[in-house]
Amino acid sequence: MSSRRDFLAQGGGVMVAALAGTPTQAARRTPMIDCHAHAGHAPALTDPWTTIADPEEILRRNREAGIDQSVIFPISNDTFEKANQEIAGICRKFAGHFIGYAKHDPETEKGRIRAMLIRECNELGLRGLKLHVHPGPEVLDTVAELGIPVIYHPARVALIEEISRDYPTVDFILAHLGADMSYDWREHLAAIEMARRHQNVYLDTGAVVLTRYIEQAVHELGAEKIIFGSDEPEVDCRLEIFKIRMLELPKLQEEKILGGNLQRLLGKYRGKAA
């Protein structure tokens, strides 16, 4: 359990002040936010991401890296109602340190997602949606109404083409610059191209091993389209933030990537959906 002193010492207070618009000196600093981390339990016990992701492990590394907050969402489950409740609970327990997103599977939870997601945002305080499975209108209409961002890790980058065109008001954050662990460098190039064509597609930098593609993305797209992420706790946020810092960008650009861009997207939350 983190104490209030702990919370304030680690920048949680800064984040709260910044979001609340308190005109303090500290509030003018853009908070550093990791847009991609996992937390909670899963039942399968076959891989780290179907077993447990410990939020305290994330907090320990965040402190060292100077990260103010992490966006957390569940690890792999078949359905996510309970897992999303766990995320909300972690956010309450470590108040100020985490921003909770829901996760859903548009196939296994088909027909129930709209009601769950509205409740998860309006009642549990979750502020975005993580997807691995391709979404249909049920998910995307709800997301558009709520005004929450979607962080999407598709099987192939091309899958984001049509939905980003059909839902121009929804902000899509394409995870891992299109290829986790840079498993295929061609997917990084496809992701950069996708973000260039669609104003509502952003790229998350987590778990990119071929770091030259992060540099290429920033150079070709501008800092506005790039959002720092790590994929904690499987991937170390300290090293992932180093990959941004070593670009040696002008301060304002770096601040956008490390938190400013995501803060702007989170500010679009409208609350109650119809």
């Binding site: 091993v209 071929l210 770091t211 030259r212 090293l239 180093f242 990959k243 070593m246």
Partner: peptide, 11 residues
């Protein structure tokens, strides 16, 4: 140079 030396050192 396939990967960045600085990342290797930092690791």
């Amino acid at each position: 140079p396939e990967l960045d030396m600085r990342v290797g050192v930092e690791s």
